[in-house]
């Protein structure tokens, strides 16, 4: 037993021989995470010596990490809050935002639901508990199961700001902690309504029009669709031109980057 322990410690110490390579640390939002993942995977192939790590904990943590200088790039699904910005500047960090892509937040229902079109006011009433049955909005007589993302996600914040107009949701609203879970809940529940990022639309759920506009890549890119938001990458100051951080933060401008953004289910900013 004692010998094993000693052996393990020796093993641990021998593994301390560190080979220094150029590193790039990315931390932050779970929503922007997939884009960072895809970019990182591509960069890893192009620059084999580069050590890229991607962490997905949340936008708030991304901001905190940038303030503490624990990461090179903070991915965020919302803009920095005033407090975070102030903390950053006080700590000698000057956050610069790069908009990497757009994301649309799309209300979804079960495919058996005949409702096709809702106004923002109707959706708001559903989430505030004023409309409780699908028959009130032209659907079958079926109680509405209201599903929302957790109150701290960027997706929620977008929905809360743009659809709910910052009004509070009813107490009976069910909260799920991820887009896949919201998707899975709506897929398996006949009376459900939920909302997910545009990348999560597929044939097992039905997207509904908001104020007569169908959520699609085209309507989001052209700014017609009302519930869309930018996705950010924050750096400390504008990165030195030609540095790896600079390459990473501007990768979304290249054709390859846009293809990857699209492949991950988001809307690239400029058409290629």
């Amino acid at each position: 037993m004692r010998r094993t322990v000693v052996g393990m410690i020796v093993l641990g110490l021998t593994m301390c021989v560190v080979a220094q390579a150029e590193t790039l640390q990315i931390e932050g939002s779970t929503t922007v995470g997939p884009i960072a993942d895809a970019f990182a995977e591509y960069f890893k192939k192009v620059y084999p010596d580069l050590d890229i790590t991607v962490k997905k904990t949340g936008s708030g943590d991304g901001a905190a990490a940038l303030v503490d200088d624990r990461c090179d790039i903070a991915t965020m699904s919302r803009f920095m809050k005033a407090k975070e910005f102030k903390a950053a500047v006080d700590g000698g960090v000057f956050p610069v935002a790069h908009v990497a892509a757009m994301d649309g937040v799309c209300p979804i229902v079960h495919p058996s639901n005949p409702v096709k079109d809702l106004t923002t006011a109707q959706i708001r009433d559903i989430y505030m508990g004023k409309i409780k049955n699908w028959s009130q909005v032209g659907g079958p007589s079926m109680p509405i199961v209201v599903i929302s993302r957790d109150t701290s996600s960027g997706t929620y914040e977008t929905f809360h700001g743009l659809v709910m107009e910052k009004k509070e949701m009813a107490a009976g609203v069910e909260y799920v902690n991820s887009n896949p879970q919201a998707h899975a809940r709506v897929k398996t529940t006949r009376g459900a309504i939920g909302y997910v990022g545009i990348g999560f639309l597929d044939r097992s759920v039905k997207a509904i029009k908001v104020d007569g506009v169908m959520p699609s890549r085209r309507t989001i890119a052209s700014g017609v669709y009302p519930v869309a938001r930018p996705l950010f990458m924050f750096t400390n100051g504008y990165p030195e031109l030609g540095s790896m951080v600079h390459k990473f933060c501007t990768f979304y401008l290249t054709e390859k980057g846009q293809e990857l953004v699209e492949a991950k289910g988001f809307v690239p900013l400029t058409a290629y």
């Binding site: 779970t30 995470g33 896949p180 998707h183 991950k264």
Partner: peptide
């Protein structure tokens, strides 16, 4: 991460 993050995992 796979359960909450990416649509590919779905």
């Amino acid at each position: 991460d796979m359960a909450v993050g990416d649509r590919l995992a779905m």
